[in-house]
């Protein structure tokens, strides 16, 4: 899924985030290994980056688009 997130530094950050989040929830990556989880975390990050880069179509006010 475009845009691809950068490689290693982001992976390191994602791994750290995964491990902290799991620990906070009383979980660990022991069963699967953090690299297996990283594949999915990367997909989630890529989805977020694609969504976050959204530019509203011409004529649409960003405030209107993103009004909760």
């Amino acid at each position: 899924m475009e845009p691809e997130s950068p490689a290693s530094p982001v992976d390191d950050a994602l791994k750290a985030m995964l491990l902290v989040c799991l620990q906070l929830h009383g979980l660990s990556a022991d069963l699967d290994g953090v690299d297996a989880l990283l594949v999915h975390a990367r997909r989630n990050l890529d989805a977020h980056l694609l969504l976050h880069a959204f530019e509203p179509s011409k004529g649409l006010e960003p405030a209107a688009v993103f009004r909760a």
Partner: peptide, 29 residues
């Protein structure tokens, strides 16, 4: 945890690290 299929468990564990702000943005979109 060990009773989940590996792929499903991995997706769910990775999902726990998604920030709330990303999800909120997805709902607004």
């Amino acid at each position: 945890g060990p009773e989940f299929g590996a792929l499903v468990r991995q997706r769910l564990l990775a999902g726990l690290a998604i920030p709330a702000a990303w999800v909120d943005e997805a709902h607004r979109f």
